[in-house]
Design a protein around this nucleic acid. Sequence first.
DNA 1: GCGACAG
DNA 2: ATCTTGTCGC
Length: 225
Amino acid sequence: MDPLIKHTWNFTESEAVDLQKQLALKVIQNDQFNKINYIAGVDVAYSEDTDKLIAAVVILEATSLNVVESVVVEDVSQFPYIPGLFSFRELPPIIKAFEKLVTIPDLVVCDGQGIAHPRRFGLASHLGVLFNIPTIGCGKTRLLGENVEPESSRGSCSPLIVDDQVIGTVLRTQDNVKPIYVSIGHKISLPTAREWILKLCPKYRLPETTRQADQLVRKTLAKDS
DNA sequence: GCGACAG
DNA sequence: ATCTTGTCGC
């Protein structure tokens, strides 16, 4: 999509933190898009004994949730996993995958947090600001914030709060199943993000976007390793 | 000081 | 993230 984005990020830890604080100011927290026809899912899988990794982007048609395009890239990890700096590890390969896409998505669902992050700039926000595209953060576990347990029925939710500020929503996507953590990534409001995530979870706990991308990367990793 | 800490 | 297929239960 954007050929000017750098692939090599030689940031020190403090430089990365400073960049997050700076870019966090650019996050847009309201709906800024027209019709959503294509939704992207992103994921990365890691080799256990080498530094090889596989990144994938899948594009789903918004109403049928059918996969209409998928891209896979192999890469080498260049940044360790550090809580709070997750995007600096996963974004380089994800960007390479995005640049091979033919279909430009109207919305991206990320496997990780958006503004539900120590500096309000998790993976989803970082990807959204870099590509100037609507994104939603969708985490399986909590990084930040406190909440009351949402009701046990599908669609129930409760606010994720930090310092009296709502930074996300804890959403029950299936009856009696552990909830997921949804937050604004970029160019979308929290209510709209919650609605889309629920639509993307007609049958399972995680969004179809995440499931499709996850299956693709792990099968690819298993195949050529 | 102690525990927690997206994937 | 990764170790892990089928199987038991609502």
